[in-house]
């Protein structure tokens, strides 16, 4: 099953460049992007902000039963990555040998294919993280 085309397009700033949001009223940073600050509500002023591309593994898991479209990559690792600014995001890990994947391991963003949408649809590119 393929990803919805407008969704792939809408997510490009986040997936390609790790663009998140910052509220200029309270200073809070969000990823993925938000349209309003849930703390400041209508007083908030949300602007785009680029996230750092380096961080560390906060937690991880090895996947042996994949959702459709990811079967050929099994087994693979997913992780909650804590970026250098404290933001946590969920990501697949790429090119990372099992013996180097541990909580606290330093990682950096790489640009990879996320899903090919059955080989006919649009290719969804985006971030994965690689253990340094």
């Amino acid at each position: 099953m393929g990803e919805n085309l407008p969704l792939v397009w809408r997510k490009m700033p986040e997936r390609y460049r790790l663009v998140g949001s910052k509220c200029l009223n309270c200073g809070r940073i969000y990823f993925p992007r938000r349209k309003i600050c849930p703390h400041c509500r209508r007083k908030g002023k949300i602007v785009d902000i680029k996230m750092p591309e380096k961080g560390k593994i906060y937690s991880f898991s090895e996947v042996h039963s994949a959702p459709p479209g990811f079967e050929n990559e099994l087994p693979y690792f997913v992780a909650i990555v804590e970026l250098q600014n404290g933001i946590k995001l969920f990501s697949m890990l790429a090119d990372s040998p099992r013996n180097k994947i541990r909580i606290g391991a330093p990682v950096k963003m790489v640009f990879r294919k996320i899903t090919e949408n059955d080989g006919k649809g649009i290719i969804a590119y985006g971030y994965k993280f690689k253990v340094l």
Binding site: E73, R112, K113, I114, I123
Partner: peptide, 9 residues
Amino acid sequence: AAIDEDSCT
């Protein structure tokens, strides 16, 4: 190239 790489990545 890995399975998730192509000339664009």
